[in-house]
């Protein structure tokens, strides 16, 4: 497994990643390369292990086997402190926002700043307002509680919290699921904007083909614990791969049989 042909180390390099929960092999040898500054979209059916994959990178789930290299260094071989430092360079937008409902919006956004850089609260508030503006929210929203926000606003706040500390590597777990198509497009637009502005590398998970084509430099399909196809977003709808085709066109018949039993 040598470095890629052009000689640069990918931002994230995953090899042979495996994770089982009990008898269920969720990830069964994932191989992925994500060059720095590019956006990868991972597609795949519900329960195919997309969230588990990014939780392994973030250190929230300990994989059974494999290599996860960030800038050429294996995260899984690091000691705890080095790993924490590596994770501190990442940002994550969770599937349902995962906003802290015991804190007002601005403290949610400034949480990482307060935790990491020990900035004073007045300064943190200013920074939070600036980040909220980047996702199109007025400073007054900062005083609301997460439970007072609509779904689209929660996604924006989650996005603001993820980017507040200017991460190098960003994860988006189904950023548009549960939103109407227009709000979905708006969120996609924000994601593309912030990723470009920060110059970050991004990995997004989605079921939404429109969303995938808007965000992706490259698309990978996860099926039965492996990456079975990878290509540009323009090739997505005509991949020639029977599994990908069935998924992207939402057909009932095909090689993918939905498991109705667990």
């Amino acid at each position: 497994m040598s470095a890629p042909a052009n000689g640069t180390v990918p931002k994230l390099r995953i090899r042979g990643l495996k994770k089982a929960f009990g008898p269920k092999q969720v990830l069964d040898g994932i191989d992925l390369d994500i060059p720095a500054g590019t956006s990868l979209v991972v597609i795949g059916g519900s329960g195919s292990g997309k969230s588990v994959l990014i939780k392994c990178v973030l250190g929230l789930i300990e994989p059974d086997e494999g290599i996860i290299e960030l800038d050429g260094k294996n995260l899984l071989a690091m000691d705890r402190e080095a790993r924490e430092r590596a994770v501190a360079t990442m940002g994550m937008l969770f599937q349902n926002g995962a906003l802290f409902d015991s804190l007002p919006v601005w403290e949610n956004v400034a949480f990482g700043l307060l935790a990491r850089h020990r900035v004073r609260r007045a300064e943190a508030r200013q920074r939070a307002d600036a980040v909220l503006a980047q996702v199109g929210l007025a400073p007054s929203v900062g005083d609301l509680w997460p439970s007072e926000l609509s779904g689209g606003m929660q996604k924006r706040v989650g996005l603001a919290r993820a980017i507040a500390a200017s991460p190098d590597l960003l994860f988006f777990d189904e950023p548009t699921t549960g939103l109407d198509p227009i709000m979905g497009a708006v969120i996609d637009g924000l994601i593309v904007d912030v990723v470009r502005r920060l110059g970050s590398t991004a990995i997004a998970i989605t079921h939404d083909m429109a969303s995938a084509s808007r965000i992706a430099d490259s698309v990978a399909m996860l099926h039965k614990g492996q990456i079975i196809w990878q290509g540009g977003p323009e090739a997505l709808m005509s991949s020639g791969n029977a599994i990908v085709d069935q998924f992207t066109h939402g057909r009932r018949e095909g090689p993918i049989t939905m498991e109705l039993r667990r």
Binding site: V87, G91, N96, S102, F111, A115, R116
Partner: peptide, 20 residues
């Protein structure tokens, strides 16, 4: 109840990703 809700809504994982 509070920690349980935080667990099932990924808030505890979110803390970890925010260096806490």
């Amino acid at each position: 109840a509070e920690l349980g809700t935080m667990r099932v809504t990924d808030q505890i994982d979110a803390l970890t990703t925010l260096s806490t």
